[in-house]
C-alpha cells in the first residue's frame, strides 16, 4: 500500500516559561493509504499533539514529516494551507461547526476554498449529506441539531473535498455511547467506500476495538 504519511524521529517540546515540557519523544510512524487507525492513550499522553502534527497545523521541534513522500517544510504557510485544504479532513471533538451556517453551508465551506463550480459543489454536498443521513436536515443550523447529527455534519465537511487523510480528535468524546458507536461505524464505512485514511484519537477501549490498527502512545512515546 502507498504510504500517505511518515514521521521520522519526531519530537515536540512545549515551553512553559523556562520549563520545557516534552509532548512527543522520538516518534516514528507511518500511515498508509486507506488505513483506519486509532491513536490510543491516556489524557496528556500526546495524542492531540500527534494529530496536530499529522494534520500539519503544528510544527515539530525536530524530526522529519513526509506527506506522500514529500518532506514538509514549515517555512511558508501558503503551501501548508493548500495541502490541508486539498489532502486533509478534520473532525473535531466539539464538532466546531460554523454556527451561522446551516448544515449544507457548513459542508460546502471547504469547497468554497477550491475552484469547484457551484453546480458541482451542490451535487457533492448533497451526496455527502445523503451519505451521513442528513440530507433532510440540510437547512438546519448547528444549534437545531443533536450532538450526533452535528458530528455527522462535521464528518461530511471533513470528507466533502475528497481528502486523502481524515483526522478525528476524540470524535466520540461529546457523544453518548450509542451515538459514538454509530459515528465510528459511519467513519469505518466511509473509510472502506472512499478509501480515505482515517486517524482518530481516543481513550475509550470500546472505540479502540473498531480500529483496524491501534497506535498506543504513552508519555509522548509510541509503545507498540
Amino acid at each position: 500500500m502507498k504510504k500517505r504519511l511518515e514521521f521520522e524521529n519526531i519530537c515536540k517540546t512545549y515551553s512553559l516559561g523556562e520549563v520545557l515540557i516534552p509532548a512527543l519523544r522520538d516518534v516514528n510512524l507511518s500511515i498508509a493509504e486507506g488505513e483506519f487507525v486509532a491513536i490510543s492513550g491516556p489524557s496528556g499522553s500526546g495524542k492531540t499533539t500527534l494529530l496536530n502534527l499529522i494534520g500539519l497545523i503544528d510544527k515539530p521541534t525536530s524530526g522529519t514529516i513526509r506527506f506522500e513522500e514529500n518532506i514538509i517544510s514549515y517555512n511558508g504557510s501558503s503551501k501548508l494551507h493548500r495541502l490541508r485544504q486539498a489532502r486533509i479532513g478534520f473532525i473535531f471533538q466539539s464538532f466546531n461547526l460554523i454556527p451561522v451556517l446551516n448544515a449544507f453551508e457548513n459542508v460546502e465551506y471547504p469547497l468554497l476554498l477550491t475552484t469547484v463550480s457551484a453546480q458541482q459543489r451542490k451535487k457533492r454536498v448533497e451526496e455527502m449529506l445523503d451519505e451521513v443521513g442528513l440530507l433532510s436536515l440540510r437547512a438546519h443550523k448547528p444549534r437545531e441539531l443533536s450532538g450526533g447529527q452535528r458530528q455527522r455534519v462535521a464528518i461530511a465537511r471533513a470528507l466533502v473535498h475528497q481528502p486523502k487523510i481524515v483526522l478525528a480528535d476524540e470524535p466520540s468524546a461529546n457523544l453518548d455511547t450509542q451515538t459514538a458507536q454509530d459515528i465510528l461505524q459511519l467513519m469505518e464505512k466511509l473509510n472502506r467506500e472512499e478509501n480515505v485514511s482515517f486517524i482518530f484519537s481516543t481513550h475509550d477501549p470500546q472505540i479502540v476495538k473498531i480500529a483496524k490498527r491501534v497506535v498506543n502512545i504513552r508519555d509522548g512515546r509510541i509503545s507498540n
Partner: peptide, 16 residues
C-alpha cells in the same frame, strides 16, 4: 478564536 482556528485547520488561508 476557536472558529478561526477551525477555518484555518480545514485549509482557509491567512489572506482569506
Amino acid at each position: 478564536t476557536k472558529e478561526i482556528g477551525t477555518l484555518m485547520a480545514i485549509g482557509t488561508s491567512e489572506k482569506r
